[in-house]
Design a protein around this nucleic acid. Structure first.
Length: 568
DNA sequence: GCCGTTTTCGGCCCGACTGTTTTCAGTCG
């Protein structure tokens, strides 16, 4: 998969073209780059099959560039553009508050072509003297450099979500707040988010903005207005609050939830139907008369579309399906009847069997599986046979105490280097649920190893199938299309691990697996009651982003049916 | 550079906030 690699080239080219003052091309290159990133198919395969034109935003010119790059490892225009300007100058545009115009102007006037030079010039107050610049701009640039240097990377959804909930809770205390909701990539349950977007309805926004911009977690106020305020939180992420009128709330939710390309498509549909769509509503283009906007459903319906769930709004074919009324009915968190991957103090978990079970009961689950690590996982205090049997006795005891829930005896069993399992057949056959997982040997191709595990009749689930951990390691090499086929044919289940830095399978993987007809399970892989409560949300979000329905997910089955499936 | 039930040429989402400016350009989302 070189999709992301090629997308990066296009982003770079867009930045340089923008600095050069070229019209429209930058937007076209960026659109193509976003399409490539969101693509679930391998761009090299599409190129081989001459289907690059199927990718939205890719036409004659860009297809030729992709082909050139795949064949030769080079892209002539990219090389030429890089040569045409000093190397680091595009970095200047990534500083908040700096855009192509300022970067170009400062390069021409002062010869600034690196972040260091820019900082020096601002500190020596050389910028404020320039036409169109002032002391405020100078301060803003210095602040932008600080933000740029400390972490301009995106934040994991699982870290940002609790922060967003905290802000919502604090603002809800204000009597001026009507409706309040999260929007943006967080509402789309993207694995990482660039900022936190919160929408509010109110007649009297000033006191809300006062409270928001003075929360103790706020480090810097970037903007404060009647309808929009922006802050940087001490946690290192930006948060925006927007205040909207009641009648525009749905249109604003739609607008600020995005994604970008989904919205652009929607706007084009609006224009074709004689409307104009903005965050204030859907309007008749000629008369400016308000047509819809109170709810998102209303906006979609007026455009001749089914309501599209936020997690699907990535312009990956959902609009075409919505026009035909054929959107899939996505799995929901309250469809989930049990959690089949969790750890206790017997291995590397923080809570006892009893604590995990009582939490699961409160969550309303019908069943769970306790799946501590197998013997090889010494670091995680993996269980050898004697301690495993001791755990089973404890499970039996807790089971008697909580008859409302079925507790399965499970294990997260290591898949060894040769694809065999870390427990003997005698132990495996006594387990209700076996989650087979790879925890070492992550640098090699693990296709055959996983395929062999899939042939083991005692393996129920393959845990975190690609080994990816965001910001820690890439997925190991794996021919997933073979894994999907083998899992489907053997009646095995692939896991969507809800740990925020994993979400493994990923949204893109889930989409492929669902198309391939593989059964999936959504687990928390919880190492504490806290995670048991909170991580299912991220697993379900990932499943929904991959267009999974309840029928694709085995832990939506009620206990009786579920038992039948795993026994088979 | 892409794209087409207005168009194969001429459009390309749209509005808020800021700063520096007396009316608007730049940036952001």
């Amino acid at each position: 998969m070189r999709n992301v690699e090629i997308a990066k080239l296009f982003y770079e080219m867009a930045d340089i073209l923008e600095m050069k003052g070229v019209d429209w091309k930058p937007a076209a290159y960026r659109r193509a780059a976003r399409s490539l990133e969101a693509l679930s198919e391998d761009v090299e395969i599409l190129a081989k099959e001459n289907r690059l034109h199927d990718i939205p935003g890719i036409g004659e010119g860009l297809a030729a560039k992709i082909n050139e790059y795949i064949k030769t490892g080079k892209m002539k225009e990219h090389d030429e553009l890089l040569r045409s300007i000093p190397k680091d100058i595009v970095l200047l545009m990534q500083i908040p508050g700096m855009g192509p115009k300022k970067a170009k102007f400062l390069f021409q006037k002062l010869g600034i072509h690196s972040v260091g030079q820019l900082q020096k010039a601002a500190e020596q107050h050389k910028l404020a003297k320039l036409a169109g610049f002032g002391t405020k701009t100078e301060e803003n640039i210095l602040r932008g450099i600080r933000i740029f240097k400390t972490g301009h990377e995106r934040m994991l959804l699982g870290r940002a979500y609790p922060l967003a909930m905290y802000i919502v809770k604090e603002l809800q205390k204000k009597k001026e707040v009507g409706k309040i909701s999260i929007a943006g990539s967080m509402r789309r349950m993207s694995q990482t988010v660039g900022d936190i977007d919160i929408l509010i309805t109110s007649q009297k926004p000033e006191p809300i903005m006062d409270t928001f911009t003075t929360l103790p977690e706020v480090q810097t106020v970037l903007a404060k207005g009647h309808t929009k305020s922006t802050v940087i939180l001490t946690a290192g992420i930006q948060a925006d609050v927007r205040v909207i009128s009641e009648k525009s709330f749905g249109a604003a939710m739609q607008y600020f939830t995005g994604g970008k390309d989904h919205n652009i498509s929607l706007r084009n549909i609006a224009i074709k139907k004689g409307y104009k769509l903005s965050e204030y509503g859907l309007f008749n283009k000629k008369t400016d008369v308000f047509v819809a906007g109170k709810t998102e459903e209303e906006v979609y319906n007026k455009l001749g579309l089914q309501y599209v769930e936020p997690e699907m709004r990535e312009n990956k074919g959902e609009i075409e399906l919505a026009a035909k009324g054929k959107l899939p009915k996505l799995v929901r968190q309250d469809d989930i009847k049990g959690d089949l991957h969790m750890h206790t103090t017997y291995s590397d978990g923080e809570n006892s069997v009893r604590e995990m079970v009582s939490t699961a009961v409160r969550l309303g689950y019908e069943y769970i599986a306790i799946t501590d690590h197998s013997a090889t996982q010494r670091i995680a205090r993996g269980l050898e046979e004697e301690r495993l049997r001791k755990l089973w006795k404890e499970i039996d005891k807790v089971q008697d105490e909580f008859p409302a829930i079925r507790i399965f005896k499970g294990s997260e069993v290591d898949i060894k280097a040769d694809g065999s399992m870390d427990y003997s057949e005698n132990i495996l056959k006594e387990l209700d649920i076996v989650v087979g997982s790879i925890h070492f040997g992550l640098k090699r191709d693990n296709t055959e190893r996983t395929l062999r595990a899939l042939t083991n009749k005692y393996v129920t689930i393959i845990g975190h199938p690609t080994g990816k951990r965001y910001g820690i390691r890439d997925p190991y090499t794996l021919d997933l299309s073979r894994i999907y086929c083998a899992a489907r044919d053997a009646g095995k289940v692939l896991e969507i691990d809800g740990q925020p830095e994993r979400t493994d399978l990923s949204d893109v993987n889930v989409h492929e697996a669902v198309k391939a007809g593989v059964h999936l399970v959504i687990d928390t892989d919880a190492h504490s009651v806290e995670q048991l409560r909170n991580y299912m949300r991220y697993g379900v979000g990932t499943a929904r982003r991959g267009w999974a329905t309840a029928a694709d997910i085995i832990n939506t089955l009620p206990l009786k049916k579920f038992e039948k499936v795993i026994r088979r």
